[in-house]
């Protein structure tokens, strides 16, 4: 990082992780900041989603463009940028898969990307089983059972993922996260077919 930034309006220094000038109270342009720091919440997988939402709403109350509609074009632009950044960060942290990816990245582990081929035979077989189970289901009742089974699998995987983060086993966490994203994709497909 370069020299610490100064306020565009009054030139006083802007401390890291803040977006309002402490002297003149003007909104500042967005800068790169990780999602956890943005909301000022602990960097962990087992996030208290309510805590996240409270932090999110607090930030939107400060930076949403509705609060700047009477101010200069520059301030309107900054609020649109910041508010968008806050929205995106909130969405990312709300989803367990992208939250895990963020955590992996923050811990120096290059998380999975979509193009990366996935070849964990054990997991692939598990997924095949679930899919076959659903396809073979003859009536809605059986289909629902099959989805319930899938739901159990998802929560099991979530638990293991959480444990691996606690143990700082990022290799394992990465694998579990890929598995989780597969399972969730299947669930969406299943639901569509209901």
């Amino acid at each position: 990082m370069s020299v610490s930034p100064v306020c565009w309006n009054c030139q006083s220094a802007i401390p890291p992780n803040t977006f309002l000038c402490q002297k003149c109270n003007k909104i500042q342009p967005p800068k790169k900041i990780d999602e956890f720091k943005l909301f000022g919440i602990p960097e962990k997988f087992d996030l208290d989603l309510e805590e996240l939402e409270i932090a999110y709403l607090k930030l939107q109350r400060l930076f949403h463009p509705d609060k700047y509609s009477q101010l200069s074009d520059q301030e309107i632009k900054y609020s649109t940028l910041l508010s968008s950044m806050i929205n995106e960060a909130y969405q990312k942290l709300s989803s367990s898969i992208s939250r895990a990816s963020i955590l992996l990245k923050l811990n120096g582990f290059n998380s999975h990307s979509e193009d990366q081929s996935f070849n964990d035979p054990e997991v692939l077989e598990e997924i095949m089983d679930i899919q076959n189970n659903f396809l073979e289901a003859e009536n809605p009742e059986q289909k629902k059972n099959s989805i319930q089974k899938l739901n159990r699998k998802i929560s099991e995987t979530m638990n293991s993922l959480s444990t691996s983060f606690k143990k700082k086993e990022y290799e394992v966490a990465n694998r579990l996260n890929i598995k989780l994203s597969y399972l969730k994709k299947i669930r969406i497909d299943f639901k569509k077919q209901l």
Partner: peptide, 11 residues
């Protein structure tokens, strides 16, 4: 994120 002074932007 540290929010030291919270003031309504349109006061």
């Amino acid at each position: 994120m540290n929010l030291i002074k919270i003031k309504e932007p349109m006061s």
